[in-house]
Amino acid sequence: MNPGTEKRVGQQDLRHRLSLLAGSAVAVTLAALAGCAKPPPPPAPPPPVVVIPPKPTPPMGAPDEMTIPPVSNDGTRHTVNYGISTSQAVWNLRSGYNVAALNCVEAEYTPILEGYKRFLKVYDKSLDRASRDIDASFRTQHAGRAATVARETYQTQVYNFFSLPPVDSGFCKAAMELSAELQTVDPSQFEAYSYKGLAKLEAPFKEFFDAYEQYRADLAAWQSRYGSSNGLITVRPTAEQTMAQPKGYAQ
């Protein structure tokens, strides 16, 4: 091979080697850059699934809105039986017992009517005395016909109090207990007993009022958390709700 040819071959071989070195450097650089690149961010999590509990409902089938007697600072509920005289307690007991005798008509409550009839006979003197005292009391506060109207108005409130439909069941049971208890109350002790008997008849109503206040608190908490969701909360039934759904229910 002549010197010129040998020179050209050497130059071509050098260029080939330089090309290989350049390619290797590029590959190394790309690999290094690939190793330094940050991975793509993870996908956003799905919105939280919140199960909305059932909206609280009034106890014992009561209406959504009703007025109940307030509770004073000492925890005493101011019903129509609050702060009354002994004579008024005797008469209010008679009124409540009368409502029970008229409203608790199921066969299981037969002793109430029989007990009320006995009540009127055994304690007639105390009842008459209480009625006279109440008339006198209203006459000290009102003149003429106004005294009678005031007493009748108050008496209507008492009857309405003991006629509250949601409490019928508990009231009739309390009247049954009263009927049995009165069998042991001597007429001479009846006036003193009247507060206890009245409290027995009133107890289921106070329990209802407490339950209704709790319903109001539960409803306010529910509305505060879920009432303004405006459809932004995804609702999913709980396992118990799913099991309770009838066949063919479309979720």
Rank of each mutant, 00 (worst) to 15 (best):
P3R: 13
P187F: 04
A239D: 08
Y215H: 10
V149Q: 02
D13Q: 14
A34F: 05
L219V: 06
P166N: 02
G4W: 03
G35L: 11
K196S: 08
H142S: 12
R15Q: 13
L20D: 04
R118L: 02
A180N: 12
G96T: 00
A150T: 01
C36S: 13
L113M: 08
S126K: 02
I68M: 06
A27T: 10
A211V: 01
S229Q: 04
P45W: 09
L18N: 12
T5I: 15
Q189R: 15
E207F: 04
L219R: 00
K200E: 10
G23P: 03
P165T: 13
P43V: 11
T234M: 04
V50T: 07
L113A: 08
T238D: 09
G96F: 03
E191H: 08
P58R: 06
P53L: 03
I52K: 01
D13G: 10
A250G: 14
C36P: 00
V80P: 03
Q245H: 11
Y193T: 09
V149K: 10
T86P: 00
Y226C: 00
N160S: 15
E181G: 05
L20T: 10
D13H: 07
N230L: 04
V99Q: 04
P41K: 13
Q183S: 15
S228D: 02
T57G: 14
D128A: 14
G227M: 02
Q183P: 08
V235N: 14
Y159R: 01
P42V: 13
Y154W: 05
G248P: 09
T140W: 11
T234H: 06
L178P: 01
R236N: 07
A143Y: 05
E191Y: 05
A143L: 12
R118H: 04
F205Q: 04
Y249R: 10
D64C: 13
S228L: 01
L232G: 01
E202A: 09
S95G: 09
Y109H: 11
E106P: 00
S179W: 06
R94T: 00
P187T: 15
K173F: 05
P3L: 15
R225M: 07
F209T: 06
Y154K: 08
P166K: 11
T110H: 14
L102V: 07
P42K: 12
E202N: 15
A100F: 05
E213I: 03
N73A: 11
